[in-house]
């Protein structure tokens, strides 16, 4: 089966506020999808709702992963199924070293103890690939990291945890050119025919070095148009005005 994620007619709220209003999305193995949209359209909400963040509530609709309904799974169970999310603003967790955290998480995902020596070696290889400061993995998780370091650390976690589907929520926002390069390198390192990526962004820079299969425009809680990279260029030129008007 090639199908990874299937979202059918999803409605979701943040508190009382309706944010997703009938969203549909299919992602198969081997694909890279991009979701673009104006601020407040529901892009980050989508990522969080897939992951069952308790801040949001699904009102109706279905989220399936590999054909299984994951609507009511807890966040950790969803992660164990092979879904990953790179956070827009990763949490700082004092007192826990990055390496220990990676080891623990990896152990949970593969459901057996991690062989430390090999594991560390692999992590350090990725660290080098991403051009990260090698001391960061020994520091407390994300504590005192710069914006760029935090995002690279998210990509590092993605590489190490090897999910089937990676959702990158605004991973490129606020990054300088070099950091964006490192992130895009990480994405290419991760990508195979067996996995898929969903990139949420309103920045074009990150997409330049990637082979994008689908581009979706998300406006007011719904996907209003789907296309290929040409759509990105169109938006780059004209913004989202046109799509918004269609909605009115």
């Amino acid at each position: 089966m090639n199908k990874l994620l299937e979202i059918k007619d999803l409605y979701a709220n943040a508190g009382e506020k309706e944010i997703l209003k009938g969203l549909n999305l299919n992602i198969n193995k081997g694909e890279i999808h991009v979701i673009m949209g104006p601020n407040g359209a529901g892009k980050s909400t989508l990522a969080n709702v897939i992951f069952n963040n308790p801040v949001y509530t699904k009102k109706s609709g279905v989220v399936e992963f590999e054909g299984e309904n994951i609507n009511d799974l807890t966040t950790d169970k969803i992660a164990k199924k092979g879904v990953f999310m790179s956070f827009q603003s990763p949490e700082e967790i004092p007192g826990i070293s990055g390496m220990n955290f990676l080891k623990t998480a990896k152990g949970k995902i593969i459901d057996k103890p991690v062989k430390i020596f090999e594991f560390k070696k692999q992590v350090m290889e990725y660290v080098e690939e991403l051009n990260m400061n090698s001391k960061l993995v020994d520091r407390n998780l994300n504590v005192g990291f710069s914006g760029g370091e935090k995002k690279k650390n998210e990509i590092l976690q993605m590489l190490v945890l090897e999910p089937k589907l990676a959702i990158l929520d605004e991973t490129d926002s606020g990054l300088d050119v070099d950091a964006i390069k490192a992130v895009s390198k990480g994405i290419n390192l991760y990508k195979t025919e067996e996995n898929a990526i969903l990139i949420i962004t309103h920045n074009m820079k990150l997409l330049e070095n990637l082979k994008i299969d689908y581009v979706h425009v998300l406006v007011d809680g719904k996907i209003v148009k789907t296309g290929n990279m040409d759509l990105v260029h169109e938006i780059e030129k004209n913004g989202f005005k046109e799509f918004k008007r269609k909605e009115d």
Binding site: N53, P54, V55, T75, D76, F84, M85, I93, P94, I109
Partner: peptide, 28 residues
């Protein structure tokens, strides 16, 4: 809650996530 959600998104159960945060709290 945000910290718990972050750790759970990496595959830790809620209990493990809380334990990890408490241990980190006591680490200094």
């Amino acid at each position: 809650d945000k910290e718990i959600f972050y750790l759970m998104s990496r595959g830790l159960s809620e209990e493990d996530a809380k334990a990890m945060i408490v241990r980190g709290f006591a680490y200094p």
